[in-house]
Amino acid sequence: MRRVLLVMVVLMGVFGVIVGGMYAAQRSLIYQPSPGPLPSASDVLPGGQDVTLRTDDGLTLSAWFFPARGSAAAADDAPVVLVAQGNGGNRGGRVELARAVTRHGISVLLFDYRGYGENPGDPTEDGLAHDVRAAYDYLISERGVPRERLFYFGESLGCGVVSALAIERPPAGMVLRSPFTNLAAVASEHYPWLPVRLLLKDRYPVADNVTALDDVPMVIVYGTADSIVPPALSERVADAANARSVAVEGAGHNDRVLLDGPELVDALVEIVRSATR
C-alpha cells in the first residue's frame, strides 16, 4: 500500500509540474509571431501605404493600407476590409490576400498585433482588443471610412478578435475563416488530459460573440481537413451566427487555399457586394 501511495504521489507531482509548466507557457503556445522588420507597403504592392496605429493603452503599431485598384477617386470611395490575422506569422503572410481582394475594387488594411512583426508589446486577448480598436479608429477617424463600407475578416484566432470588436462597433459584414466556438474548445482537442478551461487566461468566445450579432451579415469559411481547428467547431459557429458556411473540401488549417484561395476571396467579395449594392 505504501508503495502504491508513493507512486500516486509521484505521479500527481509530475502531473502538477506539467500543468504548472503549461499554465506558465500557455501564451507562447497560443501566440506565435514572426519578427520584423518588414518592407515598405509600396514595395509590397503598388500603391501600398505605410500606416501607424496608436492604441489606447499607449502602443504604436505598424500596418499597411492597400487601396482598391483603379482611379484614386474610386479607391477613396471603395469598401474596406479590416483583416485580423491568425496566431502565427505577421502581416507579410497576408499580402496575397490583399492583392486578390484589391483587384475586386476593395481596399484592405493589414496590421500586426502587438509583439508581431516589428511591433512592441506582448500579445494577450485584452491587448489584441486594444490593437484592433486602433485599426478601426484609424479607418473611421483618419481615413473617413463610413460603417456601411467597413467589413471585417478574421482568420482563426483573428475570428475572436473581430467578433469581439463587432459587438462594440458593428461592421457592414464579416467573414470568419476557421473560427472556433471558444479557445478552450480547441485546446481541449489538443490537450484532452489537461483542465484547459480552468487554466486558460485568454478565452476568445467566438460563438457567444456572433450570437449577439443579429444585424451583421456573415459568412463562415473552413477546411474539411483542418487538424488544428476541427471543422465541427467552425460549423457550430455558423449555426450560432445563423450564417452561410463555405466548406473547402480537403483543406487543412494552414493550406494556401485558406489563406488566399478562390473560395475565401469569393466569400469576401460576395459579402461586400451584397452589402453595398
Rank of each mutant, 00 (worst) to 15 (best):
V44S: 06
L45I: 05
P46R: 14
G48C: 13
Q49T: 14
Q49C: 00
Q49D: 04
D50E: 08
T52Q: 06
T52V: 12
R54M: 07
R54N: 12
T55Q: 05
D57R: 09
D57C: 14
G58M: 10
G58A: 14
L61P: 05
A63E: 04
W64C: 06
F65Y: 13
F66V: 11
P67Y: 10
A68S: 03
A72Y: 04
A74D: 09
A74G: 09
A78V: 07
P79D: 10
V80N: 07
V80S: 12
V81Y: 08
V81P: 11
V81D: 02
V83L: 09
A84M: 00
A84W: 01
A84Q: 09
Q85S: 08
G86N: 02
G86C: 02
G86M: 09
N87H: 14
N87E: 14
G89E: 02
G89C: 11
G89L: 08
N90E: 04
G93F: 14
E96M: 15
E96K: 13
E96N: 08
L97Q: 10
L97E: 10
L97I: 12
A98M: 00
A98S: 10
A100L: 08
A100H: 11
V101S: 11
T102D: 11
R103L: 11
H104Q: 15
I106E: 11
S107N: 08
S107T: 08
V108I: 13
L110Q: 04
Y113I: 03
R114A: 13
Y116L: 08
Y116A: 09
Y116D: 11
G117K: 04
G117S: 07
E118P: 07
E118D: 15
N119D: 12
P120N: 02
P120C: 07
P120M: 06
D122F: 09
P123H: 13
T124P: 02
E125H: 03
E125S: 15
D126V: 15
G127Q: 06
G127H: 03
L128W: 01
A129K: 06
A129V: 02
H130N: 06
D131T: 00
V132R: 06
A134K: 00
A134S: 10
